[in-house]
Simulated assay, not measured.
Amino acid sequence: MPLPAAEWRAEVEFERRLVHASGTLFPVPYLLGWLTWTETAAILALGVAVVGLLEFLRLVVGLDHAVYRRLTREYESDSVAGYAMYQISTAAVAVAAVPALGVPGMTPTLAVPAIWMVSLGDPVSGALGDNDATEAKRPVAWIAMFLVSLALALPFTVPAFGSGVGVAVALAGAVPAAVADGLPPIIRGVAVDDNLTIPPAAAGGMLLAVTVLG
């Protein structure tokens, strides 16, 4: 028996958020000492190639199956889906933190919380918001995203930079993450999906704070 529309949407949104949160696992092998950060970034970069192929098959070839229909939103039907933007942004932040290859001053200490802000913070704020998928999020979602992002950053920034600077660096990441998360994914036809903008906004804010205060 088919689920009522409201229950079906709630179930699908839960599944989307569960898939979203699974990206939290990417940095875990590095944190456990199983992989180097360079290897972690390489895995994420390989993921970009995979999702690029999947999106090519979906948008150009016309491949359609239950996973796409269930986990992509209506406004993504003829544009690059959020999961692909998620992979691109997290890989970009990871590569930027690769020693001797990425952005000067960018380190895994900043990259890991920036990645987790989108993998954990975004699903939490999404669950608390009652906005349409193409609308800006409500104030409670902005606040939740800020608090979750701050909580994710502090365990990394305080040990690395000390209590004063560490808190300031965490705030410098949490604020732009909340702003990027709260904006609507489509503004005048231009894609600004938060999956694409949260990690670089957070990482950039923290890097700026480290540069100025460090």
Rank of each mutant, 00 (worst) to 15 (best):
W116P: 05
D132S: 07
D130L: 06
A127R: 05
T134D: 13
W142V: 07
S119E: 08
P123S: 10
D130N: 05
V118Y: 11
D122I: 05
V118R: 12
K137E: 13
D130I: 04
D122W: 08
G121M: 11
G126L: 12
A127Q: 08
W116G: 06
G129W: 03
L128M: 14
M117P: 03
A127D: 03
A141S: 10
V124Q: 10
I143A: 15
D130Y: 04
R138A: 14
G126A: 12
A127N: 03
S125G: 05
L120K: 00
S119H: 12
A127V: 01
M117R: 00
M145G: 13
D122Y: 09
G129D: 15
G126M: 08
V124E: 11
V124W: 13
S125H: 07
D132G: 10
V118I: 15
L120D: 09
V124A: 14
D132F: 07
A144S: 11
F146T: 01
L128N: 02
S119V: 08
L120W: 10
M117C: 09
D132H: 11
V124S: 04
F146R: 00
P123H: 06
D132N: 06
P123V: 02
W116M: 10
A136D: 08
W142A: 14
V118P: 13
W116V: 06
P139L: 14
G121W: 11
G129V: 02
G129E: 12
D132T: 02
I115A: 15
L120Q: 03
L128C: 05
L128Q: 07
L128W: 07
I143Y: 13
W142R: 06
I115P: 08
A136I: 02
G126N: 12
M145W: 05
M117D: 04
W116N: 02
M117F: 10
D122F: 09
L128T: 01
D130C: 01
A133D: 11
T134L: 11
S125Y: 05
V124T: 01
W142F: 15
K137D: 13
S125E: 12
M117L: 08
T134F: 05
I143R: 11
A136K: 05
A141D: 03
S119T: 15
